[in-house]
């Protein structure tokens, strides 16, 4: 099990014939992902690593029953590609692009919420359910970093997640699903959305939250716990304790503005509802282990 994407999920790759799409399709297939089709307008009939390419999402869905889509599409074209997928009935999307215009994202989010779809990203490394499927570029092949287990990870940052995941494996544990929410100010999916899924997944025994300065996602996570809607053990690691205010720290969403979005505030919110907050990445593994007994 795990969440969001499974070994039997029928996956579509939008932008499959581009260099990134082609390169990562191979790795996604190696991860066990059931990639049924690819789409690139004007490239119908081609094949990429054996995957048939269609000219439209509608056609791919009709022929292959795709349920989820991972998009290797440049930022300027993401809105149209996402709208096409939503119109064709796809309800799970992973939007990898870095640099999506924020108002395009507002439109995508509004459309997704109207039809009850979930968009993970943008500006993310994707989603991986270890041992089952991977959408994006989570380096599942690094055995000392990722391996199937019982810990769910939700994160705002890719490289840091590798670091944290490696300490989870070092502690003798592994992961169910790793979900990268991405570094943009308006992510399609928020921590609380992922927590609801992890709560319902019997295989996920604990969850690690990897946060950053800026925004209110960590505080919302604490509220969900306070309301009793998430009850599994949680460990958080928050990067950016020493980040200066009013400066974008790499991610457009990682900015402390008007005194809001500080790590101190997020730590207090999470600790007040019993979340263990690690000060160093190396503490995460042992803290999760201790919580699981």
């Amino acid at each position: 099990m795990g969440i969001f994407v499974f070994k039997d999920t029928r996956v579509l790759v939008q932008g499959i014939t581009g260099s990134e799409g082609t390169f990562w399709t191979e790795w996604m297939l190696k991860a066990g992902t059931r990639i049924e089709a690819g789409v690139t307008p004007g490239k119908a009939g081609e094949r990429v690593h054996g995957v048939p390419v269609y000219g439209s999402v509608k056609k791919a869905v009709k022929e292959k029953g795709c349920e989820a889509s991972v998009l290797f599409v440049p930022p300027a074209f993401c809105k149209d590609a996402v709208f096409e997928a939503l119109d064709a009935g796809i309800r799970k999307l992973v939007l990898l692009a870095d640099g999506v215009p924020i108002q395009d994202m507002l439109e995508m989010k509004a459309f997704a919420s109207e039809v009850g779809a979930m968009i993970v990203g943008p500006n993310t490394s994707g989603v991986a359910t270890l041992g089952e499927a991977m959408l994006g570029f989570v380096p599942f092949w690094l055995g000392h970093v990722y391996r199937p287990g019982s810990v769910g990870i939700m994160t705002r940052s890719g490289s840091l997640t590798n670091e944290i995941a490696s300490h989870i494996v070092k502690a003798g544990l592994g992961q169910t699903t790793v979900v990268g929410l991405g570094g943009d100010p308006v992510p399609g999916t928020r921590f609380v959305d992922v927590m609801r899924l992890f709560q319902a997944d019997p295989k996920t025994e604990a969850v690690v939250l990897v946060g950053e300065p800026g925004g209110t996602m960590e505080e919302e996570a604490a509220e969900l716990i306070a309301k009793g809607e998430f009850t599994k053990p949680m460990v958080a690691f928050l990067a950016g304790r020493t980040a200066p205010p009013e400066k974008k720290m790499g991610h457009a969403g990682a900015i402390i503005s008007g005194g809001k979005g500080t790590i101190q505030g997020k730590t207090e919110a999470l600790e007040s509802v019993g979340v263990k907050v690690a000060m160093k990445p190396s503490e995460v593994g042992s803290m999760v282990k201790a919580l699981l007994g």
Binding site: T155, R156, S157, G158, S159, L160, T161, N162, E163, G183, V210, E212, P213, F237, A239, G240, R241, T242, A243, M249, G250, H251, A254, P281
Partner: peptide
């Protein structure tokens, strides 16, 4: 560094 989160963590 690579990655915003890992960079911030390194600074911390």
């Amino acid at each position: 560094c690579t990655g915003a989160g890992l960079t911030m963590t390194t600074l911390d």
